[in-house]
Amino acid sequence: MAVVLARSHRWRVLLAHLFLVLLVAAVIFPFLMILSISLRPGNFATGSIIPESISLEHWKLALGFSTIAADGRLVQPTFPVMTWLWNSVKVAALTGLVTLLLSTTAAYAFARMKFRGKQASLTGLMLLQMFPAVLALVAIYAIFDRIGNVFPAFGINSHWALLLAYSGGIALHVWTIKGYFDTIPIEIEEAAKVDGATPWQAFRLVLLPMAVPILMVVFLLAFIGAIIEYPVASILLNEQSQLTLAVGSKLFLYAQRFLWGDFAAAAILSGLPITAVFILAQRWMIAGLTAGGLKG
Protein backbone atom coordinates (compact mmCIF):
# COMPACT_ATOMS: atom_id res chain seq x y z
CA MET A 1 0.00 0.00 0.00
CA ALA A 2 1.68 3.13 -1.17
CA VAL A 3 0.79 5.94 1.13
CA VAL A 4 2.42 9.33 1.03
CA LEU A 5 3.70 10.07 4.51
CA ALA A 6 3.70 13.62 5.80
CA ARG A 7 6.79 14.87 7.62
CA SER A 8 4.73 15.24 10.78
CA HIS A 9 4.17 11.48 10.66
CA ARG A 10 7.68 10.64 11.83
CA TRP A 11 7.31 13.06 14.74
CA ARG A 12 4.07 11.42 15.70
CA VAL A 13 5.66 7.99 15.76
CA LEU A 14 8.47 9.31 17.94
CA LEU A 15 6.05 10.99 20.30
CA ALA A 16 4.04 7.80 20.58
CA HIS A 17 7.18 5.83 21.43
CA LEU A 18 8.18 8.39 24.03
CA PHE A 19 4.75 8.22 25.64
CA LEU A 20 4.73 4.42 25.64
CA VAL A 21 8.23 4.17 27.06
CA LEU A 22 7.34 6.55 29.89
CA LEU A 23 4.16 4.62 30.58
CA VAL A 24 5.97 1.28 30.57
CA ALA A 25 8.48 2.77 32.99
CA ALA A 26 5.67 3.86 35.30
CA VAL A 27 4.04 0.43 35.08
CA ILE A 28 7.24 -1.55 35.57
CA PHE A 29 8.61 0.72 38.32
CA PRO A 30 6.76 -0.98 41.21
CA PHE A 31 7.85 -4.45 40.02
CA LEU A 32 11.54 -3.52 39.71
CA MET A 33 11.39 -1.65 42.98
CA ILE A 34 9.94 -4.59 44.87
CA LEU A 35 12.59 -6.92 43.44
CA SER A 36 15.34 -4.54 44.51
CA ILE A 37 13.85 -4.09 47.97
CA SER A 38 13.65 -7.84 48.50
CA LEU A 39 17.36 -8.17 47.81
CA ARG A 40 18.77 -5.36 49.88
CA PRO A 41 19.62 -5.68 53.54
CA GLY A 42 17.35 -4.21 56.21
CA ASN A 43 13.75 -3.16 56.16
CA PHE A 44 14.25 0.51 55.31
CA ALA A 45 14.70 2.21 51.99
CA THR A 46 18.23 3.24 51.15
CA GLY A 47 17.41 5.15 48.02
CA SER A 48 19.11 3.29 45.20
CA ILE A 49 17.17 1.17 42.76
CA ILE A 50 20.09 -1.19 42.14
CA PRO A 51 21.01 -2.42 45.62
CA GLU A 52 24.62 -1.74 46.63
CA SER A 53 24.94 -5.02 48.46
CA ILE A 54 22.80 -8.04 47.89
CA SER A 55 21.38 -9.87 50.87
CA LEU A 56 19.18 -12.92 50.86
CA GLU A 57 17.88 -12.42 54.42
CA HIS A 58 14.36 -11.51 53.32
CA TRP A 59 14.15 -14.50 51.01
CA LYS A 60 15.30 -16.85 53.75
CA LEU A 61 12.73 -15.42 56.12
CA ALA A 62 9.99 -15.69 53.52
CA LEU A 63 10.89 -19.34 52.91
CA GLY A 64 10.65 -19.99 56.64
CA PHE A 65 14.35 -20.18 57.59
CA SER A 66 15.85 -18.08 60.35
CA THR A 67 18.79 -15.81 59.57
CA ILE A 68 21.61 -14.18 61.50
CA ALA A 69 21.29 -10.40 61.64
CA ALA A 70 24.25 -8.02 61.28
CA ASP A 71 24.59 -7.72 65.07
CA GLY A 72 24.73 -11.49 65.51
CA ARG A 73 21.12 -11.96 66.66
CA LEU A 74 19.17 -14.92 65.36
CA VAL A 75 16.16 -13.59 63.46
CA GLN A 76 13.13 -15.86 63.30
CA PRO A 77 10.57 -15.47 60.51
CA THR A 78 7.90 -13.02 61.71
CA PHE A 79 5.10 -14.61 59.74
CA PRO A 80 4.54 -18.13 58.42
CA VAL A 81 4.47 -17.16 54.74
CA MET A 82 4.79 -20.71 53.48
CA THR A 83 1.89 -21.80 55.69
CA TRP A 84 -0.21 -18.97 54.28
CA LEU A 85 0.73 -19.94 50.73
CA TRP A 86 -0.21 -23.55 51.47
CA ASN A 87 -3.52 -22.45 53.04
CA SER A 88 -4.28 -20.35 49.97
CA VAL A 89 -3.40 -23.12 47.52
CA LYS A 90 -5.35 -25.70 49.53
CA VAL A 91 -8.52 -23.62 49.77
CA ALA A 92 -8.23 -22.48 46.16
CA ALA A 93 -7.68 -25.99 44.77
CA LEU A 94 -10.65 -27.37 46.70
CA THR A 95 -12.74 -24.38 45.65
CA GLY A 96 -11.78 -25.04 42.03
CA LEU A 97 -12.84 -28.69 42.29
CA VAL A 98 -16.12 -27.97 44.08
CA THR A 99 -16.93 -25.15 41.65
CA LEU A 100 -16.25 -27.46 38.74
CA LEU A 101 -18.45 -30.22 40.18
CA LEU A 102 -21.35 -27.88 40.93
CA SER A 103 -21.24 -25.77 37.79
CA THR A 104 -20.62 -28.57 35.27
CA THR A 105 -23.67 -30.57 36.32
CA ALA A 106 -25.83 -27.44 36.45
CA ALA A 107 -24.56 -26.31 33.04
CA TYR A 108 -25.40 -29.75 31.59
CA ALA A 109 -29.01 -29.41 32.73
CA PHE A 110 -29.22 -25.89 31.35
CA ALA A 111 -27.69 -26.86 28.00
CA ARG A 112 -29.38 -30.19 27.35
CA MET A 113 -32.57 -30.56 29.34
CA LYS A 114 -36.01 -29.05 29.32
CA PHE A 115 -37.54 -28.12 32.64
CA ARG A 116 -39.75 -25.49 34.14
CA GLY A 117 -38.10 -22.26 35.27
CA LYS A 118 -35.03 -22.74 33.06
CA GLN A 119 -34.91 -19.26 31.58
CA ALA A 120 -35.79 -17.68 34.92
CA SER A 121 -33.01 -19.50 36.76
CA LEU A 122 -30.46 -18.62 34.07
CA THR A 123 -31.38 -14.95 34.33
CA GLY A 124 -31.40 -15.22 38.10
CA LEU A 125 -27.87 -16.60 38.08
CA MET A 126 -26.72 -13.71 35.90
CA LEU A 127 -28.31 -11.17 38.21
CA LEU A 128 -26.77 -12.85 41.26
CA GLN A 129 -23.22 -12.22 40.23
CA MET A 130 -23.86 -8.49 40.11
CA PHE A 131 -24.12 -8.43 43.89
CA PRO A 132 -20.66 -9.01 45.35
CA ALA A 133 -20.23 -11.05 48.52
CA VAL A 134 -18.70 -8.02 50.22
CA LEU A 135 -22.21 -6.59 50.62
CA ALA A 136 -23.31 -9.58 52.71
CA LEU A 137 -20.23 -9.79 54.96
CA VAL A 138 -22.24 -9.18 58.12
CA ALA A 139 -24.60 -12.03 57.31
CA ILE A 140 -21.82 -14.38 56.18
CA TYR A 141 -20.01 -13.76 59.44
CA ALA A 142 -23.18 -14.29 61.49
CA ILE A 143 -24.06 -17.48 59.60
CA PHE A 144 -20.67 -19.12 60.04
CA ASP A 145 -20.46 -17.95 63.63
CA ARG A 146 -23.72 -19.79 64.28
CA ILE A 147 -22.71 -22.88 62.32
CA GLY A 148 -19.49 -22.90 64.34
CA ASN A 149 -21.47 -23.07 67.57
CA VAL A 150 -22.71 -26.49 66.47
CA PHE A 151 -19.96 -27.73 64.14
CA PRO A 152 -16.67 -26.02 65.07
CA ALA A 153 -15.08 -27.52 61.93
CA PHE A 154 -17.29 -25.28 59.80
CA GLY A 155 -17.15 -22.15 61.94
CA ILE A 156 -15.00 -19.05 62.13
CA ASN A 157 -11.30 -19.74 61.51
CA SER A 158 -11.94 -22.88 59.49
CA HIS A 159 -10.90 -23.42 55.91
CA TRP A 160 -13.98 -25.55 55.35
CA ALA A 161 -16.13 -22.52 56.15
CA LEU A 162 -14.22 -20.51 53.57
CA LEU A 163 -14.68 -23.30 51.02
CA LEU A 164 -18.44 -23.37 51.68
CA ALA A 165 -18.66 -19.59 51.38
CA TYR A 166 -16.84 -19.73 48.02
CA SER A 167 -18.85 -22.67 46.68
CA GLY A 168 -21.89 -20.46 46.06
CA GLY A 169 -20.11 -18.29 43.50
CA ILE A 170 -20.77 -20.49 40.48
CA ALA A 171 -23.07 -18.21 38.47
CA LEU A 172 -20.51 -16.98 35.98
CA HIS A 173 -18.94 -20.44 35.55
CA VAL A 174 -22.32 -22.06 34.83
CA TRP A 175 -22.79 -19.56 32.02
CA THR A 176 -19.29 -20.17 30.64
CA ILE A 177 -19.64 -23.96 30.62
CA LYS A 178 -23.17 -23.83 29.24
CA GLY A 179 -21.89 -21.65 26.41
CA TYR A 180 -19.28 -24.29 25.59
CA PHE A 181 -21.76 -27.20 25.81
CA ASP A 182 -24.02 -25.32 23.41
CA THR A 183 -21.28 -25.43 20.78
CA ILE A 184 -20.90 -29.22 21.02
CA PRO A 185 -23.37 -30.94 18.66
CA ILE A 186 -26.04 -32.84 20.54
CA GLU A 187 -26.11 -35.64 17.92
CA ILE A 188 -23.16 -37.44 19.51
CA GLU A 189 -24.98 -37.78 22.83
CA GLU A 190 -28.18 -38.78 21.07
CA ALA A 191 -26.31 -41.53 19.29
CA ALA A 192 -25.06 -42.73 22.66
CA LYS A 193 -28.61 -42.66 24.02
CA VAL A 194 -29.82 -44.73 21.08
CA ASP A 195 -27.18 -47.26 22.11
CA GLY A 196 -28.82 -47.40 25.54
CA ALA A 197 -26.87 -44.84 27.55
CA THR A 198 -28.65 -43.07 30.38
CA PRO A 199 -28.52 -39.26 30.44
CA TRP A 200 -25.93 -39.53 33.20
CA GLN A 201 -23.76 -41.83 31.10
CA ALA A 202 -24.15 -39.59 28.06
CA PHE A 203 -23.02 -36.70 30.22
CA ARG A 204 -20.10 -38.39 31.96
CA LEU A 205 -18.77 -40.63 29.20
CA VAL A 206 -19.57 -38.63 26.06
CA LEU A 207 -19.96 -34.92 26.78
CA LEU A 208 -17.44 -34.41 29.61
CA PRO A 209 -14.40 -35.80 27.75
CA MET A 210 -15.15 -33.37 24.93
CA ALA A 211 -15.38 -30.44 27.33
CA VAL A 212 -12.01 -30.88 29.06
CA PRO A 213 -10.51 -27.58 27.78
CA ILE A 214 -13.29 -25.46 29.22
CA LEU A 215 -13.20 -27.43 32.47
CA MET A 216 -9.52 -26.58 32.82
CA VAL A 217 -10.24 -22.92 32.21
CA VAL A 218 -13.06 -22.82 34.74
CA PHE A 219 -10.94 -24.64 37.30
CA LEU A 220 -8.11 -22.14 36.89
CA LEU A 221 -10.47 -19.16 37.00
CA ALA A 222 -12.09 -20.44 40.20
CA PHE A 223 -8.64 -21.23 41.61
CA ILE A 224 -7.35 -17.72 40.96
CA GLY A 225 -10.59 -16.19 42.17
CA ALA A 226 -10.23 -17.98 45.50
CA ILE A 227 -6.53 -17.17 45.88
CA ILE A 228 -7.01 -13.44 45.44
CA GLU A 229 -10.27 -13.24 47.39
CA TYR A 230 -9.84 -10.91 50.36
CA PRO A 231 -13.08 -9.66 52.00
CA VAL A 232 -14.72 -12.96 52.97
CA ALA A 233 -11.42 -14.53 54.03
CA SER A 234 -10.61 -11.47 56.15
CA ILE A 235 -13.73 -11.87 58.28
CA LEU A 236 -13.78 -15.68 58.45
CA LEU A 237 -10.11 -16.15 59.37
CA ASN A 238 -8.30 -14.41 62.20
CA GLU A 239 -5.88 -16.93 63.68
CA GLN A 240 -2.42 -16.31 62.28
CA SER A 241 -1.73 -19.93 61.35
CA GLN A 242 -5.02 -20.19 59.45
CA LEU A 243 -4.72 -17.06 57.29
CA THR A 244 -4.53 -17.10 53.52
CA LEU A 245 -1.92 -15.03 51.70
CA ALA A 246 -4.38 -12.34 50.72
CA VAL A 247 -5.25 -11.72 54.37
CA GLY A 248 -1.84 -12.34 55.87
CA SER A 249 0.28 -10.21 53.53
CA LYS A 250 -1.32 -7.10 54.98
CA LEU A 251 0.29 -7.79 58.36
CA PHE A 252 3.76 -6.93 57.03
CA LEU A 253 2.93 -3.29 56.48
CA TYR A 254 1.70 -1.80 59.72
CA ALA A 255 2.95 1.65 60.62
CA GLN A 256 4.43 0.48 63.91
CA ARG A 257 6.20 -2.47 62.29
CA PHE A 258 6.99 -1.78 58.68
CA LEU A 259 8.66 -4.96 57.36
CA TRP A 260 9.17 -3.66 53.84
CA GLY A 261 11.97 -5.99 52.81
CA ASP A 262 10.33 -9.09 54.24
CA PHE A 263 7.11 -8.15 52.50
CA ALA A 264 8.87 -7.70 49.16
CA ALA A 265 10.33 -11.20 49.22
CA ALA A 266 7.02 -12.74 50.32
CA ALA A 267 5.14 -10.79 47.63
CA ILE A 268 7.39 -12.02 44.82
CA LEU A 269 7.41 -15.55 46.17
CA SER A 270 3.62 -15.72 46.19
CA GLY A 271 2.87 -13.32 43.35
CA LEU A 272 4.99 -15.00 40.68
CA PRO A 273 3.24 -18.40 40.63
CA ILE A 274 -0.20 -16.82 40.77
CA THR A 275 0.67 -14.46 37.91
CA ALA A 276 2.04 -17.38 35.90
CA VAL A 277 -1.15 -19.38 36.46
CA PHE A 278 -3.21 -16.37 35.45
CA ILE A 279 -1.35 -15.81 32.20
CA LEU A 280 -1.61 -19.55 31.49
CA ALA A 281 -5.36 -19.49 32.15
CA GLN A 282 -5.72 -16.43 29.94
CA ARG A 283 -4.02 -18.24 27.06
CA TRP A 284 -6.01 -21.45 27.58
CA MET A 285 -9.17 -19.50 27.85
CA ILE A 286 -8.73 -18.06 24.36
CA ALA A 287 -7.54 -21.43 22.99
CA GLY A 288 -10.34 -23.34 24.73
CA LEU A 289 -13.09 -21.00 23.64
CA THR A 290 -12.00 -20.85 20.01
CA ALA A 291 -11.58 -24.65 19.91
CA GLY A 292 -15.19 -24.96 21.06
CA GLY A 293 -16.29 -22.43 18.47
CA LEU A 294 -14.66 -24.36 15.65
CA LYS A 295 -16.44 -27.55 16.56
CA GLY A 296 -19.86 -25.92 16.52
Binding site: I34, I228, A246, S249, K250, A264, A267, I274
Partner: peptide, 8 residues
Amino acid sequence: PGFISILV
Protein backbone atom coordinates in the same frame (compact mmCIF):
# COMPACT_ATOMS: atom_id res chain seq x y z
CA PRO B 1 -2.87 -10.46 41.91
CA GLY B 2 -4.55 -7.25 43.04
CA PHE B 3 -3.85 -7.68 46.73
CA ILE B 4 -0.11 -7.84 46.06
CA SER B 5 -0.01 -4.78 43.78
CA ILE B 6 -2.07 -2.75 46.21
CA LEU B 7 0.17 -3.64 49.14
CA VAL B 8 3.26 -2.86 47.06
